[in-house]
Design a binder for these strands. Structure first.
Lengths: 343, 343
DNA sequence: CGCAAAATTCAAAGCGCTTTGAAGTTGCTA
DNA sequence: TAGCAACTTCAAAGCGCTTTGAATTTTGCG
């Protein structure tokens, strides 16, 4: 193994105190001394023992993620991508993760346990529901936390990073309206999730501004899998008065929707327009669809990176980030949208 | 915060030594005393400080994963599912992860650093290449490691968990041959990965046993995305003598392949048969395809769970697991395979 | 040149746990 | 009843780092 602080300080003829301070950037160290220390670190390859640091500082150096992936619960494609961003940033600061799979019913207990264990410095929360009891649990926990997304109801008096879901689908809907569409469908994520409701709200707002409305039979809430996309779209298409446009909450849903549309012998961008929300999943690029997809875009990986950065800076009390962030999405027009077909 | 060991032992009128031993299952503790301790833990909610434990024992309590997800490198859908399994098991033993994104070119350095840092007790390695230099790096590192998959060349003198890729595609190919197919295609994963080569090998073996061969123009190696599946399948179909069957290394590839086939106006299971390898991704269930897919199945999540269990038991020196495991896959016949069409 | 203030450096006390070596108890055998 | 092994329990020494409070050296100025 490498040297430890004691050995290093003996080599240098300094006390552990001074060496430690030199390394941690304290001001009361002679500039020249600091240089010597830094050079010695280079040559010896000294790396502080994290366990000792953690014990001494009381900081755990890790972030707790409560993943909705208990045994038997489906994992989410989007999660991997988000995690990649999180990891990318965390590793820079030598932070660990505690991934805590948990079923919804014992999330509360999981949080309590995690916070009490002292094993994590901060908690991260996602998959926000419209009105989410987990927020108040977290508030009572006296441990920093950060929310990806945000609740729909109640005050947003907690730190979060969210994208402007309402705005995204508002913009998308407006575009469709401008193209002459009046009857459109919505393939949305699970009903209870805040982002689903916000997207629907955005769509409704744009519609009602033009005196249009949304037919309940053209709305579907489900997990965002290819298959749900296919089934729901198929149901929409066989109705008396099928939609001329559809909004999808995920490119994965769009995948299935596209399949259903093709199968019905319709042409995307001509017979029916489609706009999907794009989380920028590498496995599924909207520009690579047979008919490239018009999307509202926001990188999930970037969100992961940002969240890690904010959480870590919060723990280490380094930089100051805003407490609440709302990212605008980009509306990117490709070939899947076109003028509404003449009746 | 909760109590610590000192407080707990004072409450009980015992020494820290005895309490610690009682908790860690040492034999030299009076059964009655142990009961008292255990009860006190219940009432006080005592939880040992992990940082202190780590410092005292020298064990880090965490597993290092070197993920191929450096900035700019695509994340893999399959990874999330695998991770879910890993996390599920790890959390039971209060183990952390250090996710280390890394580009292929500095993987070696990443390993070195990780091992030397003492921040991890074990390393995990995946995405094995046919002949993988990382193995010898790991061997030289004096830290336990476990490989998911295994190299193709050289001795397999290291601990691994792999599935029988050769067998999987051998079985699949045999089934196709029995159904009368003689000209088949292969949509495979990246060329340099060991599992891709093994699957191809399995296919070749079954073919040559019947005096059949594999046309190079009907083989494609690529990342396993929907789009690659689509493009490659399309290329296969426009050839002079298109295949009557195709093997896909992933359901994600199959997704694209199915799209191409439908688009060409062909019927799956009738005009063309398809078998995919199924990692049991919740987002993409083969049984939910429009024409349910015949698959070779092996749960990636289960592999994650198993790997975590093996790694942790190795670190904690608890149970004994076999050092090398090769899991058979299941061949599950659904509607996407059928007799070869008459010429 | 002398002394207070500023700049550096240090010794030592934890952080909360495990583990070693020793000590105190019991139970049996001779 | 002495003597020894088998049980139990304990005090104390780390693990490697940070941080407090004090000591030492430099610097600035009258």
């Amino acid at each position: 193994m490498g040297v430890n602080l004691k050995q290093l300080s003996e080599m240098l003829g300094l006390s552990q105190t001074t060496v430690s301070r030199a390394l941690n950037g304290y001001p009361e160290v002679n500039a020249e001394t600091r240089q010597r220390v830094l050079k010695a670190v280079q040559t010896t390859g000294y790396r502080p023992n994290r366990a000792a640091q953690r014990l001494a500082t009381g900081r755990a150096g890790s972030i707790g993620l409560v993943m909705p992936i208990a045994a038997g619960i489906d994992s989410d494609v989007h999660f991997g991508e988000f995690l990649a961003g999180l990891a990318e940033e965390s590793v820079k600061h030598d932070f660990h993760f505690v991934l805590n799979p948990s079923a919804p019913e014992d999330e509360e207990a999981t949080f309590q346990r995690l916070a009490a264990s002292g094993n994590v410095d901060a908690l991260f929360l996602a998959y926000m529901r419209a009105s989410d009891p987990r927020i108040s649990i977290l508030k009572s926990l006296s441990i920093p936390f950060l929310v990806h997304g945000r609740t729909l109801d109640g005050p947003a008096d907690y730190p979060f990073l969210d994208i402007d879901n309402t705005g995204a689908f508002y913009d998308a809907t407006r575009l469709l309206i401008q193209l002459g569409h009046t009857r459109m469908a919505l393939l949305n994520g699970p009903d209870y999730l805040a982002f689903s409701q916000r997207r629907k709200k955005g769509m409704l707002r744009a519609l009602s501004e033009r005196g249009l409305s949304l037919d309940d039979r053209l709305v579907n809430h489900s997990f965002m899998t290819d298959e749900h996309g296919y089934r729901s779209m198929q149901r929409f298409l066989v109705q008396d008065n099928p939609p001329t446009a559809v909004l999808c909450s995920s490119t994965v849903l769009a995948l299935g929707a596209v399949r259903a549309i093709n199968r019905a012998g319709l042409q995307i961008g001509k017979d029916i327009s489609l706009i999907a929300h794009d989380d920028v999943l590498p496995m599924l690029k909207p520009e690579n669809f047979t008919v490239p997809l018009t999307t509202t875009r926001s990188s999930l990986r970037a969100a992961g990176t940002r969240i890690a950065a904010r959480l870590i800076s919060r723990i280490l009390k380094t930089a100051d980030y805003p407490d609440q962030e709302l990212w605008r999405t980009e509306l990117i027009v490709r070939a899947s949208t076109g003028p509404a077909p003449r009746v």
